[in-house]
Design a binder for these strands. Sequence first.
DNA 1: TTCTGGATACTCGTATACGGGAATACAGAT
DNA 2: ATCTGTATTCCCGTATACGAGTATCCAGAA
Lengths: 214, 214
Amino acid sequence: MQRPQTVAEQVANVLRESIADGSLAAGTPLRQDDLAERFGFSRMPVRDALRQLEAEGIVSIHPTKGAHVARMDATEIREIFAVRALLESEALRLSVPNLAKDTLDEAGHVLKQIDAEPNVGRWGTLNRAFHLALYSACGNARLLGLIEAHHNAADRYVRVLLSNLNYRSRSQSEHWDILTTCRHRDAEAAVRLLKRHLGEGVKTLVEAGLAGKS
Amino acid sequence: MQRPQTVAEQVANVLRESIADGSLAAGTPLRQDDLAERFGFSRMPVRDALRQLEAEGIVSIHPTKGAHVARMDATEIREIFAVRALLESEALRLSVPNLAKDTLDEAGHVLKQIDAEPNVGRWGTLNRAFHLALYSACGNARLLGLIEAHHNAADRYVRVLLSNLNYRSRSQSEHWDILTTCRHRDAEAAVRLLKRHLGEGVKTLVEAGLAGKS
DNA sequence: TTCTGGATACTCGTATACGGGAATACAGAT
DNA sequence: ATCTGTATTCCCGTATACGAGTATCCAGAA
């Protein structure tokens, strides 16, 4: 970006990460005064940050009632994953023929990191990095942006998934399979595996009963 | 919505419409002071509105440099339409089997209105209403939201298209064809027509040389 | 004439201040 | 004891104020 980093952006980044890693649970009210005091800034940049996060769909704002961490029910999770499947399938289909060998190696390296990483907190980040690497050659910046946004929106739920060891090992083997088909330049097979991969994720999530009751 | 209407939202709505109908051309700088004075409010709600519109992709904000109406080049237009084709095809595919007869009739009514409407300014709105009506039964609110957002982003370019009488009559006949296939519950045929419809649009746009040079 | 350096003006980001509406809690009546 | 009405408190939306960074413009030198 190389742009002057504004306070609002810093606040947004910290909040986003706090929400993603679960420090701020779904439904938590986000009082402007509290946050301003906690960060040591005034309410204005906090307001900007909250608006930013609202646009990303991870917080909800109601006029006069304030902001709270967005609460997702099973329906919304299903919707997000349906959209992800649609967007990421297309991105992968477009990307596979153009994937540089370096990028494929990089994706493989990320997978090895996941296998070796003991810190649960970093799995989410690495998981995202792997997926985005595969799509990076799709040639449509806006599509990539949408995909990233939906990763942000779903991240804290995915991280719950990843903390389940069973799911994680299955997810990893699916990742390796996808990477292999990409190396073989078999886009359609890769897309099939990706769709199944995402389908397994949402199924596990919904079965785990992570739906909010609000 | 039924929520308290905040000043920032009003400002955002007015600005959005002004940008869509061309009153504010691409690249136009949006000075916070000017807008605040023009609307008769302070800069704060204007800031909120600009942030909102930035999230929608209609304006760009650079810290310390200010906001301006987003400028799109041919590449971005192609990207937007590629994403639209992807999103709207899926929405239509999901929606067709569930479309109530009332909704189909409503869509037909909108098309008749377009045929009868002499005011160029309203075509854009009606055009959008037709498309959204067809997707309304897709059962995925988030998908619909994304589609609407992309309509907003592309609206001012589409309106330029629609002011071309040749394009408009062709577009209308394509609309009628799509509606007919929907009535026959032939989702795949409808999707094919829709893709061609959007493809014609982007082709006409790019040929017309509407690309910005920024 | 052209290029450079500095001063001025402009605009944004952030801080502080104020007014209003919603939620809550308490008191009084049934 | 419970319900209702009122008052208080909290919080957000909006307004005003201030400091900083950038761009512009003019003057002076090459």
